[in-house]
């Protein structure tokens, strides 16, 4: 909003200035605008970063400094990290979150792409009905499915009970309707000629998907993978319901053990938050370009 108002102001200034040196005033205006842009962006950037600095700074404070109002710790300590890492199975929760998010992401990328491929490139009876059926599941608030899912996990259609297992945590999310929809959009862009050429060369139908369609939609898949990984990394209620063994819990569930009947231990919560947030940031910074390109794609196509 501000930039637009500023924009208008500048235009008015421009209009007021005499017609002499139109180019010069244009240049000056551009420079001013750029300066203003940097100023506003730095302001916005600080808003983005300060909460994280506050989080990390609190995690380094001893308990006695929590209610003192100093921004940085006076006597910085790593004790909170020691407490969180050694007195709780934090690393185990970490590993669990990682395993669950990985299982479901691999599965989602494969199956959602396959669904997208089929709905984009095949014609078959009941196609629209089936697609609508899949899309309709997008609108169901998951809170309502917890009990049916839990009953299913206790008496599963196959194998021993799913409770307290990685599969139990992951299964509701191994295929997603949103991802299938997204992948269909991208699969539509795969040229039919390429597929027909493949068929003539004797490539199997699965081969067409695996060897031709998938490589062409790789950027979209990476975006899907990122979204899905994040979604699973954040999941709270279902992992809570389906695990009863501390050793099988995931990070968000584990974090909730820091706030209990006794209120909240802010220094420990901020330590847990730091530990759960920082690795994702590192991964993001490493893969920044790919991630942003992938996400930008979903906007253009979606």
């Amino acid at each position: 909003m501000t930039v637009l108002e500023q924009d208008r102001e500048i235009t008015e200034v421009k209009a007021a200035s005499s017609s002499g040196g139109f180019l010069e005033s244009q240049k000056r205006q551009d420079k001013l605008l750029k300066l203003l842009a940097y100023f506003l962006l730095i302001l916005g950037g600080l808003t983005m970063v300060i909460p994280f600095i506050w989080m990390i700074s609190t995690s380094l404070k001893p308990a006695s400094e929590i209610y003192q109002g100093n921004f940085f710790p006076n006597a910085a300590t790593l004790n909170n990290y020691r407490t969180v890492l050694l007195e709780t199975p934090f690393l185990r929760w970490y590993l669990n979150s990682f395993i669950v998010a990985t299982i479901s992401t691999v599965s989602v990328v494969f199956f959602d792409s396959l669904i997208g491929f089929v709905f984009a490139k095949y014609h078959f009876p009941l196609k629209n009905v089936m697609f609508l059926l899949i899309l309709s599941t997008l609108m169901i608030p998951t809170e309502m499915l917890l009990i049916p899912w839990f009953i299913m996990s206790v008496n599963p259609p196959v194998g021993p009970a799913w409770v307290n297992s990685y599969w139990g945590i992951a299964f509701p999310g191994i295929i997603t309707a949103a991802g299938a929809f997204l992948m269909r959009q991208f699969m539509t862009g795969v040229p039919d000629e390429l597929l027909d050429a493949g068929r003539i060369d004797g490539v199997s139908e699965f081969g067409l998907f695996w060897r031709i369609a998938m490589p062409l939609t790789l950027p979209a898949m990476s975006a899907l993978a990122i979204f899905n990984f994040l979604g699973n990394w954040n999941a709270y209620i279902w992992p809570l319901i389906v695990t009863s063994d501390k050793a099988m819990m995931t990070l968000p569930v584990g974090l909730s053990f820091f706030s209990n009947e006794n209120g909240a231990d802010w220094h420990l919560i901020m330590t847990g938050a730091t530990l759960s947030v920082v690795p994702l940031m590192i991964v993001f910074i490493i893969f920044q370009r790919q991630i942003i390109r992938g996400i930008a794609l979903t906007g253009v196509k979606g």
């Binding site: 916005g44 983005m48 990070l251 994702l280 940031m281 942003i292």
Partner: peptide, 20 residues
């Protein structure tokens, strides 16, 4: 990148940080 970072962090953790 700076503007995007909050998006890749955990919602539960973010909620607690802001509560604080």
């Amino acid at each position: 990148a700076i503007f995007f970072i909050p998006f890749v962090t955990s919602t539960v953790a973010i909620a607690w940080v802001w509560r604080w």
